[in-house]
């Protein structure tokens, strides 16, 4: 996983493992985040993303392995790390009974700073929630809550930002806005580690780590991951999708087949062209109508599903 790059790392995980009773939450996870990088952890629920965040934010001790944040050891230098990181847990965890303004002022005070001092950093985000600054945090909408949480995590000008599923449960527009903000923060040279279960957000990261069952499957730039997808991928649809899946799965030449929105994504085990023709012929015999089939460029999700197999 160590790459030949002179850039110092802001997050460095080496063989981190964590077990809860009989559940292995993390097994020997290693990865590194460059300074000023927007790094994504992509994986389904239960992949171990939150555990990893809790270890990096010094809230939990790893069973094995070691981790460094901004060059500081998460166990030995936890006091110093807490001053330098901004952590946003997956669950909204600000004070619901305090107003937007009060929350922000409170967290600024805890870090011995003021909102005014770091206003430039949060201005872009804060202006969006400023009209509601007197409203209690518990009464904000989901997207607003996340923006406020991001402001609170940024108010002490952290060097590293740890965001645990910041867009889960947030509407599409707010999600896009949120990622735009992350890009602007990256320009301020803040290193960001962000996790998400949404594959479409993955391509917005500089690099992503695909996680599953406590393991990292691969760490690549989104572009690389797609390029490394070796098989040819086809999209297929007909008038009767429910029957189509059953029929396609019975074909020997089909290696994998998943429903993706209104299409099925297919790969074939051998000669693509020939296999494709065989399939179309077979579907016609089965009485499928409006058959559409064409090769497509794989998405991150396709890559992830392939890696998971």
């Amino acid at each position: 996983m160590i790459e030949n790059d002179k850039t110092p790392w802001d997050i460095n995980c080496r063989c981190v493992s964590k077990r809860y009773g009989s559940v292995q939450a993390l097994s020997s996870v290693s990865f590194s985040v460059r300074k000023g990088e927007l790094f994504g952890l992509i994986g389904p629920d239960g992949a171990g993303k939150t555990t990893l965040f809790r270890i990096l934010s010094t809230l939990m001790l790893a069973d094995e392995g070691s981790a460094e944040v901004n060059g500081l050891h998460v166990v030995k230098d936890y006091v110093e790390i807490r001053k330098r990181i901004g952590y946003m847990p997956g669950r909204f965890s600000l004070y619901q009974d305090l107003s937007v303004e009060e929350n922000l002022n409170f967290f600024a005070a805890l870090f011995a700073t003021t909102v005014e001092e770091n206003y430039d950093l949060i201005r872009d985000i804060y202006v969006q929630i400023e009209p509601f600054r007197k409203r209690r945090a518990g009464k904000l909408s989901g997207g607003m809550k996340q923006k406020l949480a991001l402001c609170c995590a940024l108010i002490h000008r952290p060097v590293v930002l740890l965001l645990d599923e910041p867009t889960t449960g947030v509407d599409v527009v707010s999600r896009r806005e949120f990622w735009d903000m992350l890009k602007r923060l990256k320009e301020q040279n803040i290193s960001i580690l962000v996790s998400t279960p949404y594959m479409d957000e993955a391509r917005l990261c500089d690099r992503i780590a695909l996680m599953q069952s406590g393991r990292i499957l691969s760490v690549e730039t989104p572009q690389h991951i797609i390029e490394k997808y070796s098989d040819k991928l086809y999209a297929l649809r007909t008038a009767d999708m429910a029957r189509l899946i059953c029929d396609v799965q019975q074909m020997d030449c089909v290696e994998s087949c998943f429903a993706f929105g209104e299409y099925l994504h297919l790969t074939f085990s051998d000669d693509d062209q020939a296999a494709c023709l065989v399939l179309l012929d077979y579907l016609k015999k089965k009485g499928h109508q409006d058959v559409v089939c064409h090769p497509i460029v794989p998405s991150i999700e396709d890559c992830f599903i392939k890696l998971m197999r």
Partner: peptide, 10 residues
């Protein structure tokens, strides 16, 4: 959950 935010502060 606000204890998490307090815990990651100094």
């Amino acid at each position: 959950g606000s204890i998490e935010q307090i815990n990651v502060s100094p």
